[in-house]
């Protein structure tokens, strides 16, 4: 069987406290080997908290500065010592003092991928574009021998993001998130926002014949509570496993590449995708505007 084991780490980060959050990350990373996982995925901005506002200025880390990036040394070390790869979210700062809502993937003690969130919600309760610069695309990286791509929260709401990721070769789509719980629905045992997310993730998994791993945070920031419910959807669009809503915890899930390949053979939607047609249509749309 060709499979990898992933730990979904559903945490409640300390807002604005990098050091305490690194310690919390280490606790979960250390739990991974016993749980039989080789990969740990944390939520969006897991190392910093979400509604940072002006505190973003203080908490950004420039990965190209050896001195600044050394703050993550304990994570690099744990990854190397335990043989565990880690995806975690942080505030990235570049040389020009632009800030990004970023996620890195650390493997064997090194950062192997950084995703800068592309779609920054700035409406309703969200104000990301006030502080962050959007990322420039979606990249593919090697996740224990499987091709993966990170979509951060709102990125997943744009179906073009998963379209790009899958057509670039992603077999696993990692959606790390800080999604606030909201909306009461009669007769439904979860918040409306949770329901909407689960439907979206199922659609992405089914129509892109991919594994979708959703890792959402919990806890409150100034009255806004994040819903948790981290889960995994298989390429049949079905939810394989899920953590509880509104509580910290972790869950080991298995990604079975044999099943993925089987589904992709039976329903070859990705093979049949007409990229040239899409390109032509999109050029037409852009030219007509």
């Amino acid at each position: 069987m060709h499979a990898i084991n992933v730990l979904l780490a559903q945490i409640n980060p300390y807002v604005g406290d990098l050091k305490k959050n690194i310690e919390k990350h280490l606790e979960f990373i250390k739990a991974a080997p016993a749980a039989g996982a080789e990969f740990v995925i944390f939520p969006e901005l897991s190392l910093t908290g979400y509604f940072l506002k002006d505190a973003i200025y203080d908490i950004g880390v420039n990965l190209n500065s050896e001195e600044e990036a050394s703050v993550f040394e304990p994570l690099y070390k744990a990854s190397l010592d335990l043989g565990i790869s880690v995806i975690a979210g942080f505030v990235e700062k570049d040389e020009n003092y632009n800030f990004y809502n970023s996620s890195f993937c650390i493997s064997k003690g090194k950062i192997i991928n950084v995703h800068r969130k592309v779609y920054l919600p700035t409406y309703g309760m969200f104000e990301e574009l006030r502080y962050f610069k959007p990322g420039g695309g979606f990249s593919i990286f090697d996740m224990a021998g499987v091709k993966a791509s990170i979509l951060t929260c709102e990125d997943a709401w744009h179906l073009s993001s998963s379209y790009i990721a899958v057509n670039k070769g992603a077999e696993i789509i990692v959606v790390n998130s800080a999604s606030p719980a909201r909306g009461i629905t009669e007769g439904l045992d979860k918040f409306s926002s949770i329901n909407m997310w689960e439907e979206l993730l199922s659609v992405i998994a089914f129509y892109y014949r991919s594994y979708v791993i959703y890792v959402n945070r919990v806890g409150f920031e100034d009255g806004i509570g994040f819903s948790g419910g981290s889960c995994i959807f298989g390429p049949t669009g079905e939810m394989d496993a899920r953590l509880g809503y509104l509580e910290e915890g972790y869950l080991k899930v298995e990604i079975n590449l044999d099943l993925l390949n089987n589904e992709r053979f039976k329903t070859p939607l990705i093979r049949d995708e007409n990229l040239n047609l899409t390109l032509k249509e999109i050029e037409g749309i852009i030219n007509s505007k």
Binding site: I184, T185, E186, D189, K190, F191, V218, G219, F220, E247
Partner: peptide
Amino acid sequence: LPKIDEHNFPIIFKHLTYFIKDEV
């Protein structure tokens, strides 16, 4: 206006008690 009923009550209760606990 959606009703708070026996289906959504458990998660609303969990949410509101988590709010009090976390923020206090």
